[in-house]
């Protein structure tokens, strides 16, 4: 956005999230560098989605702050394209694939403005990029899981931003969709975009990504895949359970102390 001096796309300071039903995310302190493909890995319940949602302001923070291109998160949020988990919406909603992609443009439109021809053009191009243009007028419940995921990706593309946060885009998609997503991710990196992806399949991390964040309630490791994606770090992430931490988290929640003033 500002070419002269570049603040990092996303900076997270001392972020702690105390959730009602889940444990918590403790003291996350990280700066996502520009132009990287970042995999966010960790076991179930490690807080991967929570981290993304916290950055997007969808869950309340107990403490800490998020900066987007050096601005407070509230102002900077429109600079991030967010791809939520597929189950987060009602796919029976009466709307077409193209229409969903067009929703990605809503952030760019004035209050009562309607999408213009240019917005439609962008939406079509985005659909084309994910190989879904022929399904543009299909109702979304008639798409397969992989196709729905591609529509979500296209919607993020239509936002035309430089930062993408994706919550498990590879979950339950077919092989061709997976391939299409990987091609897309690489393209985005070539354009200098920053993409952080919650990812479950550890096997493919070195192949698809260049940077990895290992998360398990706290940040275990963050850095280039070659140096960070080590057996030792993985053991630390997936191995030793932090029973004490979880228990204390529960206690915090129960004592209504979750909101730190």
């Amino acid at each position: 956005m500002s070419p002269a001096e570049k603040p990092a796309p996303i900076e997270v300071h001392d972020l702690t999230v105390a959730y009602r039903h889940r444990p918590v995310l403790w003291d996350i302190d990280v700066t996502l560098p520009e132009g990287n493909l970042i995999a966010i890995c960790g076991p179930n319940g490690a807080g991967k989605s929570t981290l993304i949602k916290a950055i997007m302001g969808l869950v309340p923070l107990a403490s800490g702050k998020v900066e987007i291109f050096g601005k407070p998160a509230k102002q900077g949020r429109s600079l991030i394209a967010y791809v939520p988990q597929r189950e987060s919406v009602d796919w029976d909603f009466p709307t077409t694939a193209l229409d969903v992609v067009l929703m990605g443009r809503y952030g760019h439109l004035p209050l009562f403005g309607r999408p213009r021809k240019r917005d439609r053009e962008i939406a079509r191009q985005s659909l084309e990029k994910v190989g879904m243009l022929e399904f543009a007028n299909r109702q979304i419940s008639q798409l397969s899981g992989g196709q729905q995921q591609r529509v979500f990706l296209a919607r993020a593309l239509a936002q035309q931003t430089r930062v993408y946060l994706m919550d498990e885009p590879f979950a339950g998609v077919d092989a061709s969709t997976e391939k299409a997503i990987v091609v897309l991710l690489r393209e985005l990196r070539e354009q200098g975009c920053t993409v952080a992806v919650v990812h479950h399949d550890l096997q493919s991390v070195p192949e698809y990504f260049d940077t990895v964040m290992l998360l398990n309630l706290r940040m275990v490791a963050f850095g280039p895949v070659e140096s960070t994606f080590t057996t030792e770090n993985l053991n630390k992430t997936y191995g030793g359970r932090l029973n004490l931490l979880t228990e204390v988290g529960e206690k915090l929640r129960k004592s209504e102390w979750s909101a730190r003033q």
Partner: peptide
């Protein structure tokens, strides 16, 4: 030790705990 959080970041947490 266990979470490898920098020492200058841990005071607030402990304050609560």
């Amino acid at each position: 030790r266990k979470l490898e959080i920098a020492p200058d970041h841990v005071h607030d947490d402990a304050e609560e705990i």
